[in-house]
Simulated assay, not measured.
Amino acid sequence: MSALTLTAAPVDRPRQTRWLLRLHRPALYTWAVLWLALAALLLALDGPLLNAAADAWRQYESCPTSERCSYDQNAILRYKDYYNYATIALNVLPFLLAAWAGAALTGRELESGTARLAWTQATSPARWLAVRLAVPALGVTVCTGLLAWLHHRAWAASQGRIDSAKEWYDRFTFHAGGPTLAAMALAGLAAGALAGLLLRRTLPALVVGVLVAGAVRGLTELAMPHLWPAVTRLSTVDQGFLGKGMAVDQGMVTASGAHVPPPTCDSVKACATAFDRFTGRYNTYQPHSHLWGLQLTTTALTLAVAALLVTGCFLVLRRQTGTLRAARA
């Protein structure tokens, strides 16, 4: 069969999408099972698990301090454990997507030659990559967005009813219950795809994709508290730090009004002497009212990083396919 015959019939985009879904059918089934399990768990955390734990907390709080009384401790612990399981699982999703994208979405297809076969059947490399990024990205955005909404509902329902409920600024809770989850999932997908294109081998791409996704998460964590104007509260030395929320900076106020880091001391006497030099304390933090401002700015930052990773994917592919054409010519 001639090269002209191989390139004669174009492959339309719906056919490419169907081929992609068929090729990655095991991953699709695994994702569906995982999504359903997490959705069911989050609904339970907003329903029977929450109600049982809330009743147990009411029983505990109504106990006289001088007497022993029974309350359903297992319900409290069960809710706490399942909440942690669901929250950690949601935070791990971007890393799983990075591993899959590096190992299977691009790395394995390049390593096995499936990608080159597609390129010989009137599918341009750019279109091949666009389909492999766009189709999973659409599914990931919808699925993680729904899970984040369910998680936020479950968390909000626990406020005022569960004494041990996580605060909004707990980092795992923050990312599991907002649009940052979808943004980080997309960044993980792009990181894995880029690793697969660069390394063209399954296992190395899996490892590098996860590491890049971890780097994106780490940089986001560092930048997040500073992405929205913070609030600063002053207090006396004896009052301690006032204000509750996501910490940005804390320290001491000198007589001149300067803000300096808190002193280090190893004994009560040394601490008393050290703190005598200051006139007060300052606490710079993000209050609860800044939750969605931080969510949106962090999402925007993460999506910008994801866009850079996607751009890198196309640049790497163009360099590789250009080199391939030059060698054949």
Score class of each variant (00 low, 15 high):
P262S: 07
W57P: 09
R132M: 04
P179T: 00
C63F: 13
E109D: 12
V316L: 06
S235H: 07
W119E: 15
H288P: 05
C265S: 07
R328S: 11
F275R: 14
Q250N: 09
T120I: 08
P14Y: 00
A307E: 10
D12R: 08
S70V: 13
A9W: 13
Q121K: 14
H151E: 06
G240Y: 11
V237A: 10
D266S: 05
W168Y: 11
A272V: 02
A75D: 13
S112G: 06
A118K: 10
A134R: 04
H290Y: 12
L203H: 08
V253S: 11
S124V: 11
A137E: 05
A247C: 00
A156K: 12
P26L: 01
T106N: 07
L49V: 03
M224H: 15
V33K: 05
A205G: 01
S112L: 03
P229R: 13
R325M: 13
G280M: 08
L21Q: 01
R233K: 12
G160W: 08
A104Q: 09
A258G: 05
A89I: 01
T299Q: 06
L315D: 09
G257T: 03
R68I: 08
R116Q: 13
R200P: 00
L77I: 12
T144R: 03
A134S: 06
G243W: 12
L181V: 00
P14E: 01
V310K: 09
R116I: 04
T232V: 07
A54I: 07
T323K: 12
L6G: 09
T144K: 00
G322R: 09
L36Q: 02
L303M: 08
W292S: 04
A300D: 13
L301K: 03
L147N: 04
L4C: 06
Q320I: 01
L93C: 02
V248N: 13
L21G: 00
L45I: 06
P179M: 01
I162E: 14
A118G: 05
G245C: 03
L117Q: 15
T7H: 15
S256E: 14
D266L: 02
A258C: 09
A258M: 07
L198A: 02
T30N: 04
L21H: 02
S66Q: 14
T273L: 10
F95G: 05
H290C: 02
L294V: 04
N74L: 15
L309C: 05
L105M: 06
L21E: 02
W35M: 00
Y29F: 07
A183R: 04
L294E: 10
L93Q: 10
T87E: 09
A137F: 02
D170W: 04
G178E: 08
E67D: 14
G102Y: 01
G102R: 02
K166L: 10
V268M: 02
A53V: 07
R328G: 09
P94A: 02
D12M: 00
R68N: 10
S66I: 03
V316M: 05
